[in-house]
Computed example of a mutant assay.
Amino acid sequence: MSVRPAISEDIPELVRLRQILADRMAQDGSYPVDVHWRETYAESLRERLGSSDTAVYVVDAPEGGLAACGIGLIFDRFPGPSLPDGRYGYIQGMTTDPGHRRRGHGRAIMVTLMEWYHAMNIRRIDLHATSEAEPLYRELGFSDDGYPSLTWRSPS
C-alpha cells in the first residue's frame, strides 16, 4: 500500500468516500444535510487540489477506485499566546471504504498528513472523530484540549 496525493481524476471517488463518512457521522449525531453538497464538494476539491493550504492524500484500491482518503487544511487566525503565527491545521474527511478497513490505510494517511503539517510548521491540528476512529487519533497524539467544543448552526 502506498499513499499518494489526490489528483483531479480522483474527485468522483473522493465524493463517494465523503458520502460514506457522512452516513457514518449521522450515526454519532444529527446535523442538517444540504441536498446539493456533492456538487459543491467536488467543485471545492477542483479549486483546492494542489494549493499550498490543502493536502489530499489517498490510497488506491487494488480493484480500482480509492480505498481511503484524508484531507489536511491550513487556516489563519489572529496570532495568540499558544499559536504565535495564527496558523493551525484541520483534518477533514478521513474515510476508508468499508471493504478496505482494518488494513492500516487510515493510519498511513494520517502519518502522511502529520508529516505534511510538520513540514509546513503547523503547531496545532484539530479534527472531529467518529467513535470508531477516535482510538487511532489518540494513539497518534490527539487529545482533549480542555476547552469544550461547541458549534452553532443556522436554523434555516
Rank of each mutant, 00 (worst) to 15 (best):
I122Y: 00
D76C: 04
P32H: 15
G50V: 01
S143D: 09
M120A: 13
T95K: 01
G80E: 06
E13A: 14
W116A: 00
T151R: 13
R123K: 13
Y147Q: 15
R18P: 03
I11W: 14
G72E: 03
T96F: 04
G106I: 01
D60G: 06
P135S: 00
G89P: 01
D97Q: 09
E9W: 05
V3N: 04
G99R: 10
A133D: 03
I20N: 03
G29R: 15
L45R: 10
S82V: 10
D145I: 13
C69T: 11
P84L: 05
A68F: 01
V35Y: 03
R38Y: 06
E134Y: 06
Q27N: 13
R107Y: 07
I74Q: 07
M1V: 14
R87S: 15
T130G: 04
R102L: 02
R102E: 08
H118Y: 08
A42V: 13
F142T: 13
V58A: 06
L127F: 09
H128I: 03
W116R: 00
S131L: 09
P98H: 03
P5R: 12
I125G: 09
P98I: 10
V59G: 07
Q27M: 13
L21G: 02
R102N: 14
A119V: 05
A61T: 08
P5V: 04
L73H: 10
A119W: 00
G93C: 08
L150V: 14
G106C: 04
S143W: 10
Y90P: 01
S51M: 10
A6Q: 03
E63M: 04
P5K: 09
P62S: 11
D85H: 12
R24T: 14
S8N: 15
W116K: 07
R38C: 08
R102V: 04
S82N: 12
Y117K: 02
D85G: 10
D85V: 04
R24Q: 11
A55R: 00
G104I: 02
E13K: 01
P12E: 11
R46L: 15
A22K: 15
E47I: 00
A68D: 03
L45H: 03
Y117D: 02
S30E: 12
M25F: 03
D28V: 12
E115N: 14
A68Q: 13
S44R: 10
L17R: 02
V33Y: 12
R77I: 10
T130F: 00
P135F: 02
A133S: 09
R87L: 06
V35W: 09
T130Y: 05
F75Q: 14
R24W: 09
P98E: 14
R4Q: 01
T112C: 07
I20P: 04
G89K: 04
R101Y: 04
W152H: 12
G65M: 08
R101W: 03
E63K: 06
D85F: 14
